[in-house]
Amino acid sequence: MVFELDTKKLEFPHPSYAEGDGLLAVGGDLSVDRLLLAYSNGIFPWFDEVSPILWYAPNPRFVIDPRKIKISKSMANVLRKNIFSFSIDRNFNAVIHHCATMNRKDQEGTWITADMIDAYSKLASLGYAHSVEVWQDNLLVGGLYGVLINGVFCGESMFSKVANASKAALIYLAQEIELHLIDCQFHTSHLESMGGEYLSLTDYLAILTKKHNDE
């Protein structure tokens, strides 16, 4: 069953009610408070320019344990050459715009609409959304961005303008930021090759809410 959200009420159904494809609810808004409530409960928006706001909570969830990220021999060789430098939150605006405008195989248009850019930029200004930037010869050549909730980095998108830049961004995120989990949301073969695996929604939510339980 897909629930219709009321813009006047700040609430979501439990993520376990999501459809088989992960779709849980439709409607609502992209306010900071609603986005934070969503991510705190394992829910995220994903829609295109012609759709209403759609909210997903996939079960199982596709994730990467930062401690188990896989680095191929060729990628390890790239990193040893130090052709890239990295930064965190140096230019969130540039990263999200690059992610929105990158041409992607088998995909028409983008889910990173102007409203999404505005919403996540507000999250970034408040310290909830973060970016990793990859630089080569002082040029921004790759990166990723996402929302950090209770030690879980909910990855939204990544981009690469040169070979291996987005992979390098993900490895840097896993190794340089203390995280419990990287939430990839949906499966891709690329992320699977780097250690992505399925995790039940129950186990995912247990990790996501562990900080609150400990307190």
Rank of each mutant, 00 (worst) to 15 (best):
H190C: 07
Y172S: 03
A163C: 08
L5G: 00
V132W: 00
A163Q: 13
K8Q: 13
D89F: 10
R90T: 14
A174L: 09
G196Q: 02
R34C: 09
S189Q: 13
F12R: 05
E11K: 12
F44P: 00
W46G: 05
F153K: 00
H130C: 08
L139F: 07
D137L: 07
L139H: 11
A100R: 04
P66S: 09
F3E: 14
E108H: 11
K9P: 02
H97K: 14
T101Y: 09
F153G: 00
G127W: 05
V63S: 03
A114H: 09
S193E: 12
S193Q: 11
F12V: 07
G109W: 08
F86N: 01
V2F: 10
I83T: 11
G142M: 04
D29V: 07
L79Q: 11
A129T: 03
F153Y: 14
L179D: 00
S193V: 06
L181K: 01
D6I: 07
A174P: 01
F84R: 03
L5T: 01
L205K: 02
I53A: 09
I88R: 15
K211C: 09
L181G: 00
E156Q: 08
R34T: 08
A163D: 12
L170R: 00
I83Q: 13
S200E: 06
M116H: 06
S16P: 05
A114N: 12
L199H: 00
R67M: 10
E156I: 03
A57C: 11
K81M: 10
S87N: 10
L24K: 03
I117V: 15
N138C: 06
W46M: 09
L36K: 01
G196W: 00
Y198Q: 08
S51N: 13
A38T: 04
Q107F: 11
R104A: 11
K161F: 06
Y128T: 04
N213W: 10
R34Q: 11
I96Q: 01
G151R: 01
F3I: 13
G28V: 02
W55Y: 11
P45V: 05
E215N: 13
L30H: 08
M158E: 04
P15L: 10
D65W: 05
N82P: 05
V78D: 08
C184T: 03
M102R: 12
G22N: 06
L140P: 01
D118N: 13
D183P: 02
L148A: 08
E176Q: 15
N91T: 15
V26P: 01
I207S: 10
A169F: 02
I69H: 05
H97N: 14
C99V: 07
I88S: 12
F3H: 15
Y39A: 02
E4A: 10
N93C: 09
L173W: 01
Y145I: 06
F3K: 14
S157D: 04
A124Y: 12
H190R: 07
D137W: 04
R90A: 12
E215Y: 11
V50N: 13
R80D: 12
M102L: 15
D33F: 06
L199C: 05
